[in-house]
Design a protein around this nucleic acid. Structure first.
Lengths: 163, 163
DNA sequence: GATAGTAACTATGATAATCATAGTGACAAG
DNA sequence: CTTGTCACTATGATTATCATAGTTACTATC
């Protein structure tokens, strides 16, 4: 790519988000962070992205205040990456993307019947499907309210990438 | 870029969405389509993307079943692009992106006080802010329920690009 | 105490996507 | 019959991405 046009000073809010989120690598890294993968190598392995790209994007996300680098051991200095509040607030975007894909992006029977990823409302145990409001108790759903459970097929895929 | 890794057969729903949505041009074009811009030239002018990119992405979106090409005149054959149901269902994603940006992506006072883009609930007239449930009447908000109104600054920017 | 990991990166070169700019085809209007 | 509009396609320079290999700083094993 050439020097891509800069959208960081548009007044359009979607344009501003697109500057950061309109990038496959950023989206995949955020997904992994929301999933609890905080280590560089774990993210690189699961996303399938090269270390150079992961490095560049984590630096960008850090600069944007979406993730924080955190040392988790000192002897050989090692860092992990954590979502900030600004980062956690991106959950709605990723959750909407997941909902759309569950509804439209799978051929019949491909997942073996259910969704590729099931979400349960922690408070009441209801399977929320792709809803943003719990069908069981009516509560508005956000990051932390939900417990994700990958389908067997997805779990197998992740295990294969980690090995 | 090299031949980018293919995510269309991951079982991860975010990965599948990212295959399409992890692209600045796609996001900007979708934004314009949701905004009612259906003509090639209007989209190219407003997004600032070159005609080649717009052409390529519209073809991709059509292939994915997100937009439909529709002839609006026959003499000189002219087409416009419309969102399909699958495309309209992406509203939640774009709306979540907009909400995040309104909350985090503007420096103080940059928009002149309010949000860069105001959304009113058609049914009750309430300004919904960045909520997904109407603060006035409690209804769940989707595409078609909302009326967007760009701020003066955003309106001026769009007019400048169209000129 | 030399070899083999482990984790988090950086370096290198080939490939391909993006941008800017210009051009095309079909018609309408002046 | 020249100019204008709309929806594109063509071309060449630039640069991001991928694949692969290498680096640094330790720890654990033989």
């Amino acid at each position: 790519m050439p020097k891509r046009a800069d959208l960081s000073d548009t007044f359009c809010p979607v344009g501003r988000s697109a500057e950061l989120l309109g990038d496959r690598a950023v989206l995949l890294i955020l997904r992994d962070l929301f999933f609890g993968r905080r280590r560089f190598e774990a993210i690189a392995a699961n996303t399938g992205l090269g270390p150079q790209l992961v490095s560049a994007r984590l630096k960008l996300l850090e600069k944007e205040g979406v993730v924080e680098r955190h040392a988790y051991q000192a002897k050989p200095l090692r860092h992990e990456y954590r979502l900030t509040d600004k980062g956690k607030d991106l959950f709605d975007v990723l959750y909407a993307m997941r909902g759309w894909a569950e509804r439209w992006a799978y051929r019949d029977g491909e997942t073996g019947g259910g969704p590729a990823m099931r979400y349960l409302h922690r408070a009441c145990g209801t399977d929320v499907g792709t809803a943003t409001i719990c069908p069981g108790c009516g509560a508005l759903l956000g990051y932390g309210d939900l417990k994700g459970e990958p389908s067997p097929a997805l779990k197998a895929e992740q295990a294969a990438r980690a090995g």
